[in-house]
């Protein structure tokens, strides 16, 4: 079964359980294994474009690197006083000292982040947004009002992007700053958000959308035994990993 087909709610719950388990483990090897397994499963069990994986791995890698260096220098109980770190002359020695004592912590922090990111990337890249929300609606009892509200806002994004372009242009043709993060532009976008929410709500209601009433669904995501089996396998192998790799 491809990861894309895995029921999104089950996928989400599985990942959340794994995250909670991992957050109480301080095991570099386990973290790394999880990360590797995630990447491999993306490669073997999904149709994800490798370019997209790379695009998400870069920021995740940066975050992990940052955390690594942080752990290296400032791990708790570190032998280096924080103050001394600014001392450039001492640096090489200090780094060496730090390496010996803090490397373990640093690696732990960084690999943990990578493990999370691995799981997150699997979810982000193999889950169709609409399928996810529909599944939340049917499996997690997210009320339709919220589910369709989320979808509407999500699908409004390209409209917002176009509107932002127009707003920027209107500012520019009036000799005003059109930078997207300029307060005036942002406030205009904020105003537009309020306007959109009102019009969207009216449009949806006029098309008969009613949060409370009964409705049919053109497709209903279901949980199949396979979905659960995979979840059990994932969590099971995680727990097994803890015992095998020791903590």
């Amino acid at each position: 079964m491809k990861l894309e087909k895995w029921n999104p709610s089950v996928k989400m719950v599985t990942i959340l359980i794994c995250v909670l388990i991992l957050s109480f483990q301080y095991n570099t090897v386990l973290n790394t294994t999880v990360f590797a397994v995630m990447l491999l499963s993306l490669f073997f069990f999904s149709e994800v474009n490798p370019g997209k994986v790379a695009a998400l791995l870069v920021p995740a890698g940066f975050a992990a690197l940052g955390l690594f260096v942080m752990g290296l220098y400032y791990a708790k109980g570190s032998s280096i006083p924080v103050k001394a770190m600014a001392d450039v002359d001492m640096m090489p020695y200090m780094v060496r000292a730090a390496l010996s004592t803090n490397l373990h912590t640093a690696l732990q922090l960084a690999t943990r982040l990578l493990a999370y990111a691995g799981m997150g990337i699997v979810f982000a890249l193999t889950t169709d947004g609409e399928y996810f929300v529909r599944s939340l609606m049917h499996q997690c009892h997210l009320p339709p009002k919220f589910a369709y509200g989320i979808l509407a806002a999500f699908y409004l994004m390209p409209f917002m992007a176009r509107e932002l372009k127009n707003v920027q242009l209107s500012f520019r043709v009036r000799n005003m700053c059109g930078n997207a993060l300029h307060p005036n532009v942002l406030f205009t976008m904020l105003v537009n958000s309020v306007r959109w929410s009102e019009s969207e709500a009216m449009a949806m209601e006029s098309k008969g959308f009613c949060g409370a009433a009964k409705r049919t669904y053109c497709e209903i995501p279901e949980i199949h035994p396979a979905d659960v089996i995979i979840a059990v396998l994932c969590i099971g192998s995680m727990v097994a990993g803890i015992f095998i790799l020791g903590s």
Binding site: Y155, A203, S206
Partner: peptide, 27 residues
């Protein structure tokens, strides 16, 4: 409720933008 209203009256608004909540017309 909106569902009952929609069975008797549906409205097309003046501003053609902001009338949709899905990605494609089929959806």
């Amino acid at each position: 409720n909106p569902q009952e209203r929609a069975s008797v009256m549906t409205v097309m608004f003046q501003n053609p933008d902001l009338q949709f909540c899905m990605q494609t017309l089929r959806n």
